[in-house]
Design a protein around this nucleic acid. Structure first.
Length: 927
DNA sequence: AGGGTTTTTT
């Protein structure tokens, strides 16, 4: 059975063609689409030669599929696992339905046995059985186990693929992978044609990847009737998955867990003054109770984070429980310390853990769970456009998952440090990640895959339209999409880079600014988990070790320093020496390797894109040797004075680009490189900037306030202007985590498309010979430039001309070669003399009248001395003469000879726009 | 003056 496209059954009269169409249903899924296309073409227009070729290709594909079927090993289920009892039902349901939901707790055996049941149901022949896992470690270890059970070497009939590691062969019937890999494959093969069956495991975790995949698969299922989909989940919320796929059957398989007794232990049940619910004291009190009943059973305590773990660790250690080890467990813990948890000794153990122990890691031998009922949860706040990391009460589902962690070796007891009413008031399920995240990445991927309107995509739960709009806005901010919300060339490039869009955007800019090498290093660092370790008993040593690489101006330069040192160590040292090197510098060996591998992966993509690392190999050598110089204190316009020459360029709203000076070599080369690197960073996160206020806090865009994170190398001497790669609200305090000193000019240049500019105080400048104004430039409320002189001509030519007439020509405040200007002033002086002699005020005409004298006598675009001179030189004598004042022109009637000639005109209020108007009315120019 | 949950990607 294979995919049959709805429009494919236009029956042809030709029996040969019809027979060939039937055969198409028995080809390999990978070839089906292409072969069907060729068949369609031939059924429209016959061609004997092509028909023969198609027949041959179809036969080859059918043969490949037969070979796969023949290679199937005998299938034996592990009868000790609960799922095996339901094997026949499951096989039948897979045969009869396109989508099946399997609900089973840990220990049910679903992950390892389901692929085998699929094989038994005839799957894996047309294409592979693809099994996804949320974590790389799980994908690999489950693959190993299933390969073993099927008696095949790993990578042969059973393979796996995770990032950096691909062990799948042509012969593979079953492929384990992370859900991220499957999602990534949609880009190269939208039909996912390598598979005839997909198993999405642990769907209840509802990660971004899983939610996106489930939406994608819902649509794909309609287009590929031959594709089978199995969704597995813990026994929670299975109805939602079944409903999502139009009423798929649900099979419930019991787990193999032991019963767990629940005991509620809120603070008020054990009155003690000042004891906070879930605090270290509270935990200690419950641990006392456990120890009293059973001093031997291992205990797993769930806490929200490292700090709480540290506090509890201190308090519990002081209490000196008999024959007991207290040990922390969290993701940032060094590999060695984590390993200790998995090798229990003779002593009783109390493991203080974060959420890692909820899903990612399984702590062995646990008999008791103490659940504080809280966790730190990351949420993207669309309103403040900020990531928040706050302690929140966990959902009922998460609490039950924690409870289950003590029922694996025998009956367990779970102590909840809250009461039942609290529990029943909680959310049933943890919010899916999709509803807690910025959607820029999801939307970019949807655009790249041409999935149509975001609000029509069949998500299990649709995201808030405001968050969708925010995602689009973020993509606009980095120029990934245009006004029509279509991908720009930049956007297409971002979609090809397997990292966060904003980080990918930095790479794109790094290429443009010729700082690819540095950006690859920084961006890959920002994509991995921080490799720096800070063990509780050696925090100062660790800080000192890390400080060796730090740069006082930029944490990113610090990253480059670290990379260089690590790179050298990697070249010179053996594997085990490198391990030593890492631990000496308090660096996680694994994560450093991850960094290197991601760097290499990005390097390959970048080479595919045809990007060059450097301008030339010469520049490359110099750049490598160049030390990073601090940004120059003042450059160009920032220095004032000669700055003015840049102004004209600024009018076009394209701030000056950096000089094309080579990046390497000289001192200025290093400064140039610093600038290029940080401007590239700004391009990815153009709004993550701030200016220091009097109190040392930073004022950022959108009225956002943040503080320099104390762990940043810049914390000792915070610069005036800062770029921060991550601004995080941690329990109400907002920190800029990784920072660098930048120039406001760089921000202006990289955020040119987001700026708001207003012009004020337009006036004539004799010195510069043109009309100027003061420009204020701001980025979402953050003023980047307070008061910068700019030529006013382009802003408002008519107003500039009017100001020119009044302030330059009428007042004579201009240096010009045009002789009429000085002549006019002499006339004016003469008139003033007459006024003085007659001792009468108001003999001289109102300035407005003098201005209107000039109106229409010279071209309206003239607003500078240069323009005036150029025109005047070529003007006809009559035109020149018309600009000269006589006493009549300057004096009120009666004072001059022919009073009758213009009586009334004198009193008329001829108004022209006046300079003050410009002062009163700033010109808003949205860009 | 002062410190962070977890996972994943062509």
């Amino acid at each position: 059975m294979n995919d049959t496209h709805p429009t494919a059954d236009n029956a042809t009269a030709d029996p040969g063609l019809r027979e060939l169409r039937r055969q198409l249903d028995t080809v390999s899924s990978r070839d089906f689409g292409r072969l069907l296309g060729r068949w369609r073409g031939l059924s429209r227009r016959a061609d004997e030669g092509k028909l023969a070729a198609l027949r041959a290709d179809i036969e080859r594909s059918v043969a490949r599929r037969r070979a796969r079927a023949a290679a199937k090993p005998p299938i034996r289920l592990d009868e000790s696992l609960p799922i095996s009892a339901r094997g026949e039902d499951i096989v039948r349901l897979i045969r009869e339905h396109q989508v099946v939901v399997i609900a089973g707790e840990t220990g049910s055996g679903k992950t390892t046995q389901l692929p085998k049941l699929c094989l038994a149901a005839g799957r894996g022949e047309a294409g592979m059985i693809g099994c996804t896992q949320p974590r790389r470690l799980a994908a690999r270890s489950v693959a190993r186990r299933v390969a073993e059970e099927l008696g095949t070497p790993l990578g042969d009939l059973v393979g796996f693929q995770v990032r950096f590691n691909d062990q799948v062969s042509e012969r593979s019937l079953v492929k384990f992978m992370t859900d991220g890999i499957l999602l990534a494959e949609t880009q190269g093969d939208p039909w996912l044609s390598a598979y005839d069956t997909l198993i999405i495991d642990e769907a209840h975790e509802r990660s971004l990847n899983i939610d996106f995949l489930l939406g994608y698969l819902k649509r794909l299922a309609l287009k590929r009737p031959g594709l089978k989909i199995i969704v597995t989940s813990a026994t929670i919320d299975t109805a939602r998955f079944a409903e999502h796929f139009g009423g798929a059957p649900v099979v419930e398989v019991e787990g193999r867990a032991y019963p767990v007794e629940l005991r509620w232990r809120p603070v008020d049940a054990r009155p003690r003054d000042g004891m906070q619910q879930g605090s270290a004291e509270h935990i200690a009190a419950v641990l006392d109770e456990i120890s009293h009943d059973d001093p031997r059973g291992d205990v797993l305590v769930f806490l929200p984070g490292e700090r709480e773990i540290r506090d509890a660790h201190q308090l519990l250690s002081r209490r000196q429980y008999r024959e007991t080890e207290i040990m922390p467990l969290y993701a940032r813990l060094s590999a060695g310390d984590q390993d200790r948890v998995f090798k229990p000794g003779v002593k009783r153990r109390v493991v203080l853990a974060t959420n890692v122990a909820e899903t990612s890691l399984t702590v062995p031998r646990i008999r008791y769970v103490i659940d504080t009922g809280t966790a730190r949860v990351k949420r993207y706040s669309q309103r403040s456009q900020l990531e928040r990391l706050h302690v929140e009460p966990i959902s009922q589902a998460a609490a039950d998952q924690r409870k289950g962690r003590c029922g694996r070796v025998g009956p367990g007891v779970c102590y909840r440090l809250y009461d039942e009413a609290d529990f029943s008031g909680r959310a049933a399920f943890t919010d899916p990640e999709l509803l807690r995240s910025s959607l820029a990445n999801v939307i970019l991927r949807m655009l790249a895959l041409k999935l149509g309107e975001v609000d029509e995509f069949p998500f299990l739960e649709a995201p808030d339209p405001r968050v969708v709009a925010d995602g689009f806005r973020r993509l606009t901010e980095i120029s990934a999409i245009d006004d029509a919300r279509k991908l720009t060339p930049i956007g297409h490039t971002l979609a090809r880079l397997p990292i966060d869009v904003q980080l990918a955007r930095m790479l794109v800019e790094g290429e443009k600014l010729q700082a690819m090498r540095e950006l690859l290093t920084i961006v890959s660092f920002l994509s991995i988990q921080d490799p720096r370790e800070r063990p509780g008993d050696a925090r100062q040593q660790a800080d000192a070790a890390h400080a060796a690489f730090a740069d006082p101006k930029s944490d990113f330069v610090g990253v480059l320093n670290l990379w260089r040192a690590y790179h050298d160590a990697h070249e010179e040292l053996t594997q085990s020496k490198l391990r030593d090197w890492c631990s000496r510098h308090f660096l996680s060996f694994m994560r450093m390797r991850e960094w290197r591998e991601l760097h290499r992966q990005l390097l390959l993509v970048v080479q595919e894109l045809g990007w060059k690392l450097d301008v030339s190999s010469a520049a490359q050598n110099e750049a490598q040797n160049a030390r990073f110089a601090p940004p120059p204190a003042s450059r160009g316009r920032l220095g004032g004075g000669e700055a003015f020459c840049d102004v004209a360029q600024n009018q076009k709203r394209t701030p000056p680009q950096p000089s094309p000076a080579s990046r390497g070599g000289s001192e200025s080369g290093a400064g140039q490189l610093y600038e290029s690197v940080h401007r590239a960073l700004l391009a990815g996160l153009p709004t993550q900037v701030g200016r220091k206020d009097e109190k040392g806090a930073y004022l950022g865009t959108r009225e956002r306030k943040f503080q320099m994170f104390p762990g940043s190398a810049l914390a000792k001497a915070p610069p005036n202007w800062v770029f921060s790669a991550q601004i995080l609200d941690v329990g109400g305090r907002v920190w800029g985590m990784m920072n660098a000193r930048v120039e406001p000019l760089w921000i202006e240049q990289q955020a040119a498309h987001l700026l708001r500019t207003s012009c004020r105080d337009a006036h004539w400048s004799k010195k510069r010979g043109c009309v100027v104004a003061y420009e204020q430039v701001s980025l979402f409320g953050l003023v980047l430039v307070e008061k910068r002189p700019v030529t006013f001509q382009q802003q408002d030519p008519a107003l500039a001309h009017a100001i020119f007439l009044r302030e330059a020509l009428v007042r004579g405040d201009i240096e010009s070669r045009a002789d009429f200007v000085r002549a006019n002033q002499r006339v004016l002086e003469e008139a003033l003399g007459i006024e003085a002699k007659q001792r009468r005020e108001g003999l001289i005409r109102h300035e407005d009248d003098l201005v209107s004298f000039f109106e229409g006598k010279l071209p309206g675009e003239i607003a500078s001395s240069r323009a005036l001179d150029a025109w005047y030189r070529k003007a006809r004598p009559a035109e020149q003469a018309a600009l000269r004042w006589s006493l009549d022109d300057v004096l009120v009637g009666g004072a001059a000879l022919d009073a009758k000639a213009f009586p009334a005109a004198l009193d008329m209020d001829v108004r022209v726009p006046r300079a003050q108007d410009a002062q009163e009315r700033p010109l808003d120019m949205d860009v």
